[in-house]
């Protein structure tokens, strides 16, 4: 479990990014972290990885303090940054040198994932495109079998088939012991793989709900006219009508439109969160 309590962080003394961040990530969940540029998504991932140190407050990852960067902690966490540069080696050499640091590293998984991503072991990493390098890093990260996998914009640079492969891989290699945190702007790439959606704005968590709760409380529809639709929380005009987010009234489950939900939260997070509270109150 990852527990963040009253965390304060700033890059500069005057501009505090997080003033009192409180959030918990439970094992067995794939979290999607959304937010505007500069909202603090990447910073949050770096704080969890121990790449940045909080000014105050607690960050606890499976009992470890990330800022100490203890070897046992580092063996169980992997961070895929948005941008990175590999050393000048072949894939085989890179894997050989780095796999030994991770006690749970599975070479057969690595081989399988390299095949899935159409990469060959004897290729020089520097001759690969950015997308191919990203695929290599994703394959390596999954193969480490780390309990915590932090991914910052993992689908940036991936072509369309690879995005689909990525979703398939995340779904296949996720298990109840692991926590995956995926920060992204490309919400459509996370379709069907998320368990919980978290939205961060101005250093605060403004939305934190599981997919189950979202399906239970909200309804995503396409309508021709908003005025005829009851309980509308948010409407987005599009060609031929509107995409609307409403309170759920019936029992039918609708497919979650993360993009629409994200826009609704950005437009009025209190209204969207209220939909969950209303439902909870009515249950009580």
């Amino acid at each position: 479990m990852i527990q963040i309590k009253d965390l304060e962080f700033s890059y500069r003394k005057k501009n505090k990014l997080f003033t009192s961040l409180n959030v918990t990530f439970n094992k067995g969940q794939v979290y999607g972290i959304l937010g505007h540029n500069g909202a603090g998504k990447t910073t949050l991932l770096k704080l969890i990885a121990g790449l940045l140190f909080p000014k105050s407050g607690d960050c606890n990852v499976y009992g470890f303090t990330p800022a100490k960067r203890e070897p046992d902690f580092l063996e169980d966490i992997f961070y895929i940054p948005e941008e990175f540069e590999f050393p000048s080696l072949t894939i085989e050499k890179y894997v050989k040198i780095h796999a030994r640091f991770y006690p749970k590293f599975d070479l057969s998984t690595m081989d399988h994932l390299l095949n899935e991503f159409e990469l060959t072991g004897n290729s020089k990493i520097n001759s690969l495109s950015f997308g191919q390098k990203k695929k290599l890093l994703i394959a390596f990260a999954i193969s480490t079998n780390c309990r915590v996998l932090l991914m910052d914009e993992p689908t940036n640079g991936l072509d369309i088939p690879s995005k689909s492969t990525f979703r398939k891989i995340i779904a296949s290699y996720f298990n109840e012991d692991r926590i995956f945190l995926i920060s992204t702007h490309q919400v459509r790439d996370l379709d069907n793989i998320l368990d919980t959606l978290i939205v961060i704005e101005k250093g605060k968590v403004i939305f934190n709900q599981t997919v189950g709760d979202i399906q239970e409380n909200l309804c995503f529809k396409k309508v021709k006219n908003v005025d005829d639709t009851p309980n509308v929380l948010f409407a987005d005009k599009e060609f031929g009508g509107y995409s609307v987010l409403t309170n759920k009234s019936g029992t039918d489950e609708t497919k979650i439109d993360i993009e629409l939900l994200y826009k609704a939260i950005n437009s009025n997070s209190a209204l969207v969160n209220n939909a969950f509270e209303q439902k909870n109150n009515s249950h009580e």
Binding site: L51, P71, L74, F78, Y79, F84, F101
Partner: peptide, 18 residues
């Protein structure tokens, strides 16, 4: 010294002393 590489180094499982 390289932002694109330093996370790899810092997160390589090993103590700072090593």
């Amino acid at each position: 010294r390289d932002k694109l590489k330093s996370h790899f180094y810092l997160l390589t499982p090993g103590s700072n002393f090593e």
